[in-house]
């Protein structure tokens, strides 16, 4: 089903300011580095599309996006 389709996430390092909403929402995919205060992808960095869109929307600095798969 399209909503269950797993999409790859991407984090723009320049925009990430370590707010941590991504980690709060999806701790299996996003983890904040304790020293640098920056988010990284963990495991396979993929989410079902609808949850991906929620995380993208929730990031206050707009650092998260769905990576184009073409």
């Amino acid at each position: 089903m399209p909503e269950d389709e797993l999409v790859p996430m991407a984090i723009d390092d320049d925009l990430c300011i370590g707010v941590g909403q991504c980690e709060l929402l999806e701790p299996e995919v996003f983890r904040l580095d304790d020293d640098e205060g920056r988010a990284h992808l963990i495991n396979d960095g993929r989410l079902p599309r609808d949850r991906a869109e929620t995380v993208v929307d929730k990031c206050p600095s707009g650092a998260i996006s769905i990576r184009p798969t073409t």
Binding site: G18, G20, E36
Partner: peptide, 13 residues
Amino acid sequence: LRRLVSAAFTPRH
């Protein structure tokens, strides 16, 4: 500058 302290203020921390 923000990254010097941001880790301490995440929801988890």
